[in-house]
Structures are given as structure tokens and as C-alpha cells.
Write a protein that binds this DNA or RNA. Structure first.
Lengths: 240, 240
DNA sequence: CAGTGGTCTAGACCACATG
DNA sequence: ATGTGGTCTAGACCACTGT
């Protein structure tokens, strides 16, 4: 064990974490499933229970697993409440976070344009799937959204019904679990298509959110540009 | 110890954390200063070294302390690099995060208006200090900023030079260490004063950032509204 | 009741920084 | 050489969950 650590130059608990993460990525344990107990993992991997615990504690902090006293350790799943907490930052000015309704306008398979290829880090020849939809909060259309996916990861998705919670679809049907995302925000003037879809005048200030999402295995898996009316809604960002 | 834990219903490592946090709040150890070693703290508080470690690990995660192997554990300070990382999310589209230059337009002491009193949770009669400034990135004015402070926490600040890094001033001169902040973002049309200050046409879309900052002792200590041109700059938000 | 995660302890050894 | 935090282990006991 000491030798392994010297060779790897990584602490044992991190090697343990990486190994467990790899198993989740490989689908050995699916989202929502229970992992073996600390004792069992420690015995199987030949490390102490404390080391397994530290690995699992890190994975808890990364939201890869959820631990419940008396029950076990479970692979985290992207259910609505987690999406709302982690990946949906638009909130009605007066209220709680709520999941928006959505109406799909178009789904299309095409060669990625240069912007999409850059965002998704794809080859020039690569195909992408483009989804356009309008999302509403409190019956009020407020987000005009373009989603671009690498066709290689999501083949056939264009023939499925597009659910409201896309990330759960990615995870359950394609084994692509979104782990984190980077958003870049700007204020822009509404152009004709989005003004139309949102029922505002062209030129109205909109919040543009440019998101690139990365799966837990490190692959970039989605590029999404959302144009949002912010007259009744705001984007919440906690600085900790 | 067992008795204390049963009474408090809080685990020992959390009690230890709370006690250490209180000492930092009280100024027993100032920002940048070194804490006693784990061994010393464990002996003084009558707990094991592992418990002190767990308390300090939590405080590290909360960015209250910084630990350096071989040197010691230090109270975190709000130096420029940390501000940039934690509290300044505007970045030039092409470049790295950089600290903006700033020019103060006005400093004023007044009775808080209703909005300010609500944001800062102050009594109707309370006084506030209002600072107006313009901040520039790459020589280009891009943020028009209104800062409102409770006069009770910052008496005399209106007679000081206003430095670029305000949070360090709060911490060093007033013992108010900002620990976290909540930002609410909207896209708005530029009004006359900010259009003028930023050199854009009235009606230009601007990113409005409404921030309420809270000190490590839980007191709300600053309300700040920033109006930002986002033609060359964006707001970065990491979703983890 | 048995099995799980959560807390707490004690001690050994390693890696790093400083004098 | 000394002292610091970082890693790893082993074991005890508590609190919660389901049977």
C-alpha cells in the first residue's frame, strides 16, 4: 500500500475516490442505487474504513453520492429538486424556485456551426442536435432557449419526446450524468425571434445565459443559450 | 464531554468549530494571523486532535481559515486574489479575471430609503452611508455602482479615502469580515445617469447586480447595486 | 434485532517549512 | 532538528433504519 501511494503520488483516499467515481461513470452502480457499505468497500479494496469514509465524504461534497444514516450510500440522481437547487437559477421575484413548463419549437440534426463546435469542443465534421424551446414560469413565457448536443452522445434523441427535465433524460437513457456547468451572463437587446416568442418588443433588455455543461466523466455534453425576460424573474447567484 | 454533547445535541467537532469561529469574530486572532497548532488547541479544549482537525477542515471549506502544511493554520484575509475569486464575477470576454480600477463620484450620509432599509434589514430611523462610483476594466468604464452601508457599523467611513478593495477596509478598520453574499441579476435598460457615466446610449441593455453581503458573524453589512455594460465583459457563474 | 452511517479517540508515520 | 499540517489505521461507541 505504501508503495502504491508513492508511485501514484496521490493519497490513498483520493485513489479510492477515483476508483469509486470510475465505477459510477461505468454504470456499475446506477443513479439511485445503493453502494456497498463502508466495511465491505474497505475489505474489498484493502484499505481502512476511515479511508473509504474520507473518499465518500469527498464524493458527498461533489454531490456524486448521498449518504443516509442507517440506510446506506446512494448514487445521486438528477431529480427535479436537485436540478432546481443546482442547475436552475431563475426565480420569480416574489417566490420560491419552481420548475418551468416548456414547449418545444423545433428539434433538428445538423452540422455544428463554428460557435457550437467551439463551445462543445467538437471536430469540424461533427453532427449536433439542436433543440429550440420556450419555457414559462407562472404561465408567463420567459425563457427562449437553444440547446445544442453532440449527436455522437445522444443518437436518436431527436425522435423522442423531449421531457421537461432534460438532464434526467441524458442520465437515464444515455448514461450521461451532468456534474457541473459554467454559465456566462450578459445583458442583450431582444432580436425578432425571441421578442416574438416571449411577447416583448424587439430591443427589450434580456438576460443571456450561455451555459456549457460537463458530465461527471469530464466530457462536455451540452451547450445551451437561454434568453430570459427578467421583468418578473431574476437570476440568483450565491457567493460563498 | 458526553454530557455536553447530549445537552447541546451538537457534535463535538461542531461545537469546537463554533467556538473557534467565535474567537475569530471576536478578533482573538486577526486576519492573516496564525492559530495555535492542532495539538495545542486539542489540549486546551479537552478534545482529541482528530476532532480539532475536523472542525478546522470545516472552517477551511467555509474559507474562514487557510491551512499550510509545515507552517500552520491562518485566519483567511480578504486580499485581492480572494476577492477576485469569490466576490468579483465580471470578466473580460477574452481574458482573465482582473481587479477593476474605480473612481468615486459621491459619498453621502443619509436616512435610508425604504429599499435600502429592507435590503439591510434596518429600522426606519437608521442612518446609512451611500457611495456612488464608476469602475473600469481595461481603461473602459463598465460598472456604475451604488453601495449602501449601515452607518452604525461604519461610522466615519465617509471621511476616509475609499480604496479599491472595500472589503479589506471593512475587515481591517471596522472588524467586519464579509463571509458570503447573495446576488440577484436582471437585464435592464440604461437610465440617464448610468448611461452618462458609462458612455452608452440611454436604453442600452445593462446587467443589474443586486448584492447583499453578510459578515461572518451573520450581520448584513452591505447592499450594492451594480449596473454593468456587458458588451466586452460577462458575469461568470459556476454551477457545481 | 442486525446493519448502516456518524462521532470520537489514540497513535503512527509522512511531507513540508523553518531555523 | 523541530514543529507543523496531511495521511492512514484500528477500534469503540452512538444514532438511525428496517425487519
Amino acid at each position: 500500500m505504501a508503495a502504491e501511494q508513492l508511485l501514484g503520488a496521490k493519497p490513498l483516499y483520493r485513489q479510492t475516490r477515483d476508483l469509486l467515481v470510475q465505477r459510477i461513470v461505468d454504470g456499475v452502480w446506477a443513479p439511485g442505487e445503493v453502494l456497498p457499505s463502508e466495511t465491505q468497500l474497505a475489505a474489498e479494496l484493502g484499505v481502512s474504513q476511515g479511508t473509504v469514509r474520507k473518499a465518500l465524504d469527498e464524493m458527498t461534497a461533489e454531490r456524486l453520492v448521498v449518504r443516509r444514516q442507517g440506510r446506506g450510500t446512494f448514487v445521486a440522481s438528477l431529480d427535479d429538486s436537485r436540478i432546481l437547487f443546482q442547475f436552475f437559477k431563475l426565480i420569480a421575484d416574489d417566490g420560491e424556485p419552481r420548475f418551468p413548463a416548456s414547449r418545444v419549437l423545433e428539434v433538428e440534426t445538423m452540422r455544428g456551426n463554428p460557435k457550437a463546435r467551439r463551445a462543445l469542443q467538437l471536430d469540424p465534421a461533427a453532427w449536433v442536435i439542436a433543440i429550440t424551446r420556450v419555457r414559462s414560469l407562472a404561465e408567463e413565457p420567459c425563457v427562449f432557449e437553444h440547446i445544442t448536443l453532440p449527436a455522437a452522445y445522444f443518437s436518436g434523441i431527436e425522435e423522442r419526446p423531449i421531457p421537461n427535465n432534460l438532464y434526467q433524460l441524458y442520465a437515464v437513457d444515455y448514461g450521461v450524468t451532468v456534474g457541473r456547468a459554467t454559465e456566462r451572463l450578459k445583458a442583450v437587446a431582444a432580436g425578432a425571434p425571441e421578442a416574438d416568442a416571449l411577447g416583448v418588443a424587439a430591443g427589450t433588455p434580456l438576460l443571456a445565459i450561455d451555459r456549457v455543461a460537463t458530465a461527471i466523466d469530464g466530457r462536455i455534453c451540452e451547450w445551451r443559450v437561454s434568453l430570459c425576460r427578467t421583468d418578473q424573474v431574476h437570476y440568483l447567484s450565491d457567493l460563498r
